[in-house]
Design a protein around this nucleic acid. Sequence first.
DNA 1: CTGTTAGCGCATTCAT
DNA 2: ATGAATGCGCTAACAG
Lengths: 339, 339
Amino acid sequence: MATMADIAERAGVALSTVSYVLSGKRSVSEETKQRVFRAIAELDYQPNALARGLASRRTRTIGLVFPSLTKGHSEMRMEFVARAAEVAAEHGYAFLLWTAPDSDLELLQLTQQGRVDGLILMEIRLHDSRVDLLKERKYPFTMIGRCQDNDGISFVDLDFEHAVATAVAHLAELGHRQIVLLNHSAELLEVGYGPSVRSLQGFERAVGQHGIAGVAVTSEPSAQSGYAVTQALLAQHPDLSAAIVPQETALVGMIRALNDAGLRVPDDFSIVTLLSARQAELVTPALTSVDFPADEMGRIGAELLIQQLEGQIDRPIQRLLRANLTVRHSSGAYYARSR
Amino acid sequence: MATMADIAERAGVALSTVSYVLSGKRSVSEETKQRVFRAIAELDYQPNALARGLASRRTRTIGLVFPSLTKGHSEMRMEFVARAAEVAAEHGYAFLLWTAPDSDLELLQLTQQGRVDGLILMEIRLHDSRVDLLKERKYPFTMIGRCQDNDGISFVDLDFEHAVATAVAHLAELGHRQIVLLNHSAELLEVGYGPSVRSLQGFERAVGQHGIAGVAVTSEPSAQSGYAVTQALLAQHPDLSAAIVPQETALVGMIRALNDAGLRVPDDFSIVTLLSARQAELVTPALTSVDFPADEMGRIGAELLIQQLEGQIDRPIQRLLRANLTVRHSSGAYYARSR
DNA sequence: CTGTTAGCGCATTCAT
DNA sequence: ATGAATGCGCTAACAG
């Protein structure tokens, strides 16, 4: 493998000149440039990223701390990842996927290994020790999600309160008087997982404003759990006629429980999902949804980090996105209109 | 940030001794070891991965070349990625996600930058120039998928012929006399995308063996396309009573087209999917599926590469997995049994 | 405009 | 069992 020294020798210039031709950090005569470029082409030279990183103290690599699979990865999370990786590449950055450290210590170690210039964090809790850690060390990072206190941190998040309120308003307008929020797992709510907590807050406020009855329950992320929870709900609240469901797995269980109870969706029971458009398209029957802008969040998360690393911003940028509600119908006529 | 020199000074030993304590590549007295470890703890030292990689010519990082989002990423692909990343971490490797280079040149450059020790390739075609390229350069890599000729290359792949044949057998046994394969897009078939080609081969052979009529069509990966293709199918082949569907998006379109035509799934029309268990669980109504072992393939893909990098194998390992058929029912009773 | 040189932080060879 | 010294391939300060 050719090195910079090989190029310098072949082009008959100093090693540093090759470096400067490549970086453009000082002017080089056109003729010299051409000689260098020719040598590079002839020797099929490609700069060594490690040596570059070591000398410049910049790796041009960003990392994303990725929640472990075993916790049940949602399609949404993967949309963040895929889009963030793509954006990184567009900006000339490599993308390191780091499965979630069990302890904050491991996260700290990652930051000390010099593999990446900065990190994207996701699955943020209202009070998150990882955030405190990185903040204290002044390590560059952005969040997909947000804490309670976000002073000095760039993030992109969905306005869950608004999203759920939108769903409630839609159902209230359809005439529903008693609706349920099938929230994420009880565990997530307890540890202060932002989306869970804020969805619940938005739900309670909105049902109050619309003067309708609201029941909030949690479900594990599985069809089994969604099925069981729905059965219990139907028994306890026979007047329920609609649900807001922010998770795909429990949603499937709910639909089957309703069907088994003789209720057809959406004729006898309305459901509004909170899913990415990609996911919502895959649900049968077609359901109205508040569209979680997952790829947009992945994109912005990566862009904010890169901007921060390149000193393009002097203070944190905090983006709180609002999701739109898309009314979907089960009939194939839908396809004709949506084309 | 503490460096090895800091540790050496604090422990009162040579820099190289610290290195050897860490690597264990030569014996060090117990007492010296302890002094070094204490210094490491006191200074919160963490080795710099770049310097290590530069000096040792091993990064302990593997890369996965990831098909671009714009081509429509399937849940399956993300399962490969997530599981491979997890396995890498378990083995102490970092995991670089590289969005698919448009050209082979870019792939070549990646291998020359020294960022990774080896690559995992996916979305393999029967004749794949990327594979030829890496093979020619003797660059370490493994495939999730396989080519026509796989001499000297480790891979893990699903036996698609067998998978589709299993589905055909199941449908034949149920009494179906005319069935359709709703294959991946025509484009993928044309470029020789392995799963498409092999699924088709398995389908044609199996329908022949069972003496039933088989119709093979392609669909773009969208509900719209699945809907349109199904409408055309029903018009041209009124005796069709079952389908084999290896993609989730077209599947949704097919189900809706059937419903709009007054056909209920699975009562009036049988569908066997070829999806990961994770995906299949999310389909409503519940459908029998040949379970694509996506995470297993991600795991093996990563493990084969790491074994190869660590010299644990002397010749290629080629794993062709067989998928099992899971019979699913729409009733909630299913949950009770599957628990 | 260009060349020389000193590190970046570590692994490893050569000494002892 | 340990130290000293060299170099991995590059960036950037220094020198002209």
